[in-house]
Design a protein around this nucleic acid. Structure first.
Lengths: 170, 170
DNA sequence: AGCCTCATGTAAAATGTTACATGATTGG
DNA sequence: CCAATCATGTAACATTTTACATGAGGCT
């Protein structure tokens, strides 16, 4: 369901798009919260078309198919948002590493954390650049971007404090 | 791989455990960052035993099997932690909702967010209670719990600010 | 001509979820 | 004795990832 919803959302935000476009949108805008590759997206769009949630254009150059959200698709998206209480759980490999850190000797744990922290700082810079780019009017994706930035900042702060704690222990 | 690593970590943290115990550990301690149910855990433990990462006791009461991590298992866990740069992406249904919020009329979006905020506040209270419970010495899970608390706090703050923003727009 | 990006798809494998199925032990 | 919890497993299904496969169009 989530994939379908995400695609409907992207089609609303960006207007008519091809599967290829949508795959790129996933990479750029949605990547921090959800992932999907073209091999998942193409078949899903076909199913969504047969369910009447989107319509496909005749093919353009290079076999390009442009999908447009239908009123039923828009209804279904809004209904899902209003009615579906989302799961609060998260799947995060880096947080899993964080959990397991104490199995390492403190100095090894510090090394792992410093590497992780560095990568998060880069991610934060990338997100902040995106935020600066987006003109003030662009509401779409803005809330999620803000959400992402706060999370990454929280992670960097956590890494700092955890590194300090590990160092204090030796 | 992540499931296997998580199980090795839990076996290190909690000592010899049954699949049932491990499933409960997932629910209580690891739930915020990773999920797995008994139907995934039992077969995985069998595979891990055949790969020499854990050993199984003879059965106890009610068919209970206690698994113990082997030195090879511990090595593999530490090697993974030291060498594997984890993916920084996250899969979060609630963050996906956050992203899609602008498709709703502002007052509907506010209602959705308020409901979400309430659930996160409850989650925060539960995590903070856990944190207070855990005696100061207990390092295991502490870093991850701290990580989780910071993330949930960041989410609540984000919800507050986003609600305010949506209200300001009408 | 050759390389890169665009563009679509399918297949196989791995992973994760939900449902079904069974039975022992403990506590009230 | 009954209900809850302990305890294990399998099967079916859904989802996700990785790999394979193909070809058009643009640029140098």
């Amino acid at each position: 369901m989530s994939l379908r919803i995400a695609l409907l959302g992207l089609l609303t935000a960006a207007g008519p798009s091809s599967g290829y476009d949508l795959a790129k949108s996933f990479e750029s805008s949605l990547n921090y919260v959800w992932q999907a590759s073209h091999s998942q997206i193409y078949p899903e769009l076909v199913k969504m078309a047969s369910d009447g949630l989107v319509t496909a254009d005749a093919e353009g150059a290079r076999g390009r198919k442009t999908y447009t959200i239908t009123p039923e698709g828009a209804d279904q998206l809004r209904a899902w948002l209003r009615e579906q209480a989302p799961s609060l759980t998260v799947r995060s490999e880096s947080a899993l590493q964080a959990f397991l850190l104490p199995v390492l000797a403190p100095q090894d744990a510090v090394a792992v954390l410093e590497r992780l922290r560095e990568r998060y700082v880069k991610k934060l810079e990338a997100l902040e650049a995106l935020c600066a780019d987006s003109s003030a009017g662009e509401r779409f994706g803005r809330y999620a971007l803000d959400h992402g930035i706060r999370h990454v900042r929280a992670t960097v702060a956590w890494a700092d404090d955890t590194i300090a704690d590990l160092r204090a222990r030796g």
